[in-house]
């Protein structure tokens, strides 16, 4: 009951956030300097052609009508038409790229979540000893490298040096991602480089504090073996802050990999956003940014719910069982 109430409340807030963000994105694009049609057509365009485009884009309609038309299109699943690639429906390219990004994000999650939690736990139970120092150092070092530096290092080692992985994540024309799974490895590794230090440090510090808790002492002095105490008693409590951190970065992972995707030329949402900005393809920019916002908000919502679900103190309030 408590859980459902919490769910409904958070979902309401989530939807409200998306609404507010859509208004913000729409008007930000609106108040950009210069006439949109002029921008699209360039300085050399004639006044007639600009007027014709304005008319076609409906730029002369009142603001609220244009917003409703735009937002309504999104709800119906119509993202509009690209300006740069004349006559191409955004829908036809957008979702494929989003799909690629999701696969990349999941691959990266698969790489770094178990890795950093495992090493974080290990460092945490060996607090102050050599393994702790080594893991902390590696985490800090990889965290300090920006992804374009670590990416280049990875390319140099695996693609140029060992020649076991492709340099760029390009899908040859006529093939799809599933036939080219090896292109996922380097971008995912480079994301792992960024996230490992972050998540493992979080896991380490929560593990350290949980291992000092009275209930861990109680479990050890009940005669439980050490491994059992760590994995059955400590881990479940120590995971909660880590889940928050992973969840908070989910938005970035699914929608904000602009640098990584650009570096490897990975055909995902990040590089699409990048090229939309470069070509001033306003409807495409709006679609990308709104979608990324949506992912951020939704990832936060999911994390929140997961946290509540894993934490019995939130799941059941005192008294009801």
């Amino acid at each position: 009951m408590e859980f459902l109430k919490r769910f409904a409340k958070r979902l309401g807030f989530t939807l409200l956030t998306i609404l507010a963000m859509s208004v913000l994105i729409f008007f930000l694009v609106e108040i950009m300097p210069g006439d949109v049609a002029q921008t699209v057509l360039g300085q050399s365009a004639t006044e007639e052609s600009v007027a014709a485009l304005r008319d076609r884009m409906g730029l002369d309609d009142p603001l609220h009508e244009r917003y409703l038309r735009w937002a309504g299109g999104f709800i119906r699943g119509d993202l509009g038409e690209s300006l740069y690639m004349r006559g191409v429906q955004i829908n036809t390219i957008f979702w494929r790229k989003v799909g690629h990004s999701v696969v990349l994000a999941l691959t990266a999650l698969l790489f770094y979540v178990p890795l950093s939690i495992l090493f974080g736990v290990f460092a945490g139970v060996k607090e102050g000893k050599a393994p702790d120092a080594i893991i902390s150092f590696v985490g800090l070092a990889t965290m300090a490298l920006p992804e374009f530096v670590s990416g280049i290092i990875l390319i140099t080692v695996f693609a140029v040096g060992l020649e076991i992985l492709p340099i760029a994540s390009i899908i040859p024309i006529g093939e799809n991602l599933w036939q080219n799974l090896d292109i996922l490895v380097l971008p995912a590794l480079s994301i792992t480089f960024v996230m490992f230090g972050y998540v493992s440090r979080m896991q380490r510090s929560s593990m350290v504090s949980v291992m000092k808790a009275d209930y861990i002492r109680a479990a050890i002095l009940k005669g439980m073996p050490r491994k059992y105490v760590i994995f059955r008693h400590a881990l479940k409590n120590a995971l909660l802050p880590t889940i928050t951190i992973i969840g908070m970065n989910m938005g970035w992972l699914f929608g904000g990999l602009i640098v990584v995707e650009t570096l490897f030329g990975f055909p995902g949402l990040g590089s699409l956003t990048m090229s939309a900005i470069k070509t001033r393809d306003i409807p495409l920019i709006e679609a990308c940014v709104l979608f990324i916002t949506f992912i951020f908000v939704f990832a936060t919502f999911t994390t929140d719910m997961l946290y509540a679900f894993l934490n019995p103190r939130i799941r059941y309030k005192r008294g009801d069982a």
Binding site: A213, D214, Y215, R217, A218, A219, L221, K222, R232, H233, K236, N237, L310, N311, P312, R313
Partner: peptide
């Protein structure tokens, strides 16, 4: 066997 001062913190909250 042991019994501790603070029963609440001596019991694991998530089990």
């Amino acid at each position: 066997a042991m019994v501790y001062q603070n029963p609440y913190s001596s019991l694991n909250p998530s089990l």
